[in-house]
Design a protein around this nucleic acid. Structure first.
Lengths: 166, 166
DNA sequence: TATTATTAGTAACGATTGTTACCAGTTACC
DNA sequence: GGTAACTGGTAACAATCGTTACTAATAATA
């Protein structure tokens, strides 16, 4: 007997009962792992090589893709909350990747856009990021890819449905 | 003209050029969103209703499923780093969900197991978590589910391949 | 035109996290 | 045996993060 308990009433054997949950097969867990690995592969790029946080990368991508936007719009578009956007934008203003003009029509809002420097950075990261995506997706057959693509959206929808009702 | 720049050299229009990256279609981003929504739906359960952090939930599931393990084994099995496991386990020891015996054969290691209370908790959360998983996956046809299941593993593999080489 | 509600953005705080370094125990090698 | 290299686990610090509450500006209602 290699162990002795120091608390009473410990359970003995793994249950393995009906309806028992296996972490390895549990889809929410697997999706967390998948996202962690895939995002990690891209984060290595914008993080280590270009010194951006995840939030900064998303802001860069949002503005690079869509042009000028307010912080709130970036927030909606990039699934970051407004505080994350605020912090990311401030660091990017300091780095002169982003410039912010005040909206004369609504003086609460700042209209943000990439500077030339920001555009250049986006133009450099973008193809590298897409190449990594392609590499990862090359594990799939065209048929699998088509299905996967469709399914991801379906699941996002369905999960949101569940979230709403607690 | 509703705006005026306060920094020089801002870019004008969105590029929309060849190889430009669209966040909404970029798979690493979509997977982050998917995992966030799906994990969120389950986190609502173990978090709001049972007061567990994500790390605690994984430790509970690992021990509930596999029986006694050391912290290192939990770490490997649950994709948590060893510090996360250490912290989670300590809170769970305080809550008497977990009990830890010293391994006589290697006195560095603590062999951890669920207490009766821990087992009971796992037994209560487990079916609810599985029900949420089922609900979400019910968005898919059986065929889609089979493909998705296979594809998730393939992508995890491939992404890890990429991670290794920087 | 007051008065209330709403919205954009941020400051400031406490909580959570990642990192580094460390200790104690164990294994490998001379 | 002695010494060096590793491993399991954690303490302690800094950095990051989420939350709450706030300011300034606008919109809605009377």
């Amino acid at each position: 007997m290699p162990t002795q308990d120091d608390a009473p009433e410990t359970a003995e054997a793994p249950p393995e009962a009906l309806g028992a949950l296996s972490l390895e097969r549990f889809m929410p867990y697997r999706l967390a792992v998948l996202a962690h690995e895939v995002s990690g592969a891209v984060a290595q790029l914008y993080g280590e090589r270009f010194n951006l946080s995840r939030a900064e990368w998303r802001v860069l991508a949002a503005l690079g893709e869509r042009g000028a936007m307010t912080a709130r719009e970036i927030s909606d578009y990039s699934t970051l909350d407004k505080m994350q956007v605020s912090r990311a934008v401030n660091r990017m203003l300091a780095e002169k990747l982003v410039a912010g003009g005040l909206d004369a029509a609504d003086r609460r809002r700042k209209i943000l856009r990439l500077t030339k420097k920001g555009e250049t950075l986006f133009g450099r990261i973008s193809p590298l990021a897409l190449a990594r995506e392609s590499f990862i997706l090359s594990a799939l057959t065209p048929e699998e890819l088509r299905t996967f693509d469709k399914v991801v959206d379906k699941l996002i929808q369905k999960a949101r449905e569940l979230q709403q009702w607690g």
